[in-house]
């Protein structure tokens, strides 16, 4: 019964029910090493999902494939119901070309562990470069949008500075602003506090918290900050060895973890 009900729902109201992002049996191999073993995962419009798990569990790979930085070895990743790495020609799926990738990429933004700011540009230009050249905004529009966003992340006074003059926390806030001004539908955060000195972690997390509250962007956050994950996420996914070991509401995951591996993982975190 449940099955048919679900099927009916999805065929009746595709727009409401269609996940924003969908992984179907996605695998990824690096050489002989299989880092993802048939991942099934859906992210709804506006949903905030935290990916946790030990290093090497494949969580970073999941978002890097969505950003089109890595190619999946098998399976299908869809965005808005459209396959990301494939193009539909009739009923057939063929490998996507650059044009297709660029079309779908426009809904995705990413913040990196090592910031990856452009060192040869001022902070302002770091944030306006893509809106001008990719979105085709005028310089004035782009500046306005960028200044607004940089004010929001507390860096309105650093417009003319260069990345090397900023602290790690400031750089990461610029990187967030740079991604947000592109107005993506889903934002990916790849261990964005791992490269920061401990005292700078808080300011970056606060920016992301505010962002999560104020916008209806979906977010996928790969993180080792458990309190943060619990705070911000609608759903937490625990990965182990390239598979989803357990997922659920943050309270359930952190208060009453079911699998032994998750219990072990969490206890190690709470102890350190």
């Amino acid at each position: 019964m449940g099955m048919t009900e679900k099927q009916l729902k999805s065929s009746n109201k595709p727009d409401k029910e269609m996940p924003l992002v969908q992984y179907e049996n996605v695998t990824k191999k690096f050489g002989d090493v299989e880092v993802l073993k048939g991942l099934d995962l859906e992210i709804k419009q506006g949903e905030k999902v935290a990916l946790i798990g030990p290093s090497g569990s494949g969580k970073t790979t999941i978002i890097r494939m969505l950003m089109t930085l890595e190619k999946p070895s098998g399976g299908v990743i869809s965005l808005n119901g459209e396959p990301l790495w494939h193009k539909k020609i009739g009923d057939k799926l063929v490998p996507a070309d650059e044009k297709h990738l660029r079309k779908l990429r426009s809904d995705i933004g990413m913040v990196f562990q090592h910031f990856n700011l452009f060192p040869h540009m001022t902070i302002l230009r770091n944030v306006t470069e893509a809106p001008i050249h990719v979105l085709g905004l005028s310089k004035e529009e782009a500046n306005e949008r960028a200044v607004d966003m940089l004010n929001k992340v507390g860096l309105g006074d650093k417009l003319d500075a260069y990345p090397e003059q900023l602290s790690g926390g400031q750089k990461q806030r610029v990187a967030i602003a740079r991604a947000v001004v592109m107005h993506p539908k889903v934002m990916l955060f790849d261990e964005v506090t791992s490269a920061l000195d401990p005292e700078l972690v808080g300011e970056v997390l606060q920016v992301i918290r505010d962002l999560a509250k104020e916008t209806d962007m979906a977010m996928i956050l790969v993180t080792h900050e458990m309190d943060f994950a619990r705070d911000i996420a609608d759903r937490v996914v625990f990965l182990h060895n390239g598979q989803i070991e357990e997922e659920g509401h943050p309270e359930d995951i952190f208060e009453t973890p079911e699998s032994e591996r998750l219990q072990g993982f969490l206890s190690r975190f709470l102890n350190t």
Binding site: M67, R102, G109, N116, E129
Partner: peptide
């Protein structure tokens, strides 16, 4: 990677 994430050609 950052330029791909910003959807540059």
């Amino acid at each position: 990677e950052a330029s791909i994430a910003l959807n540059m050609s």
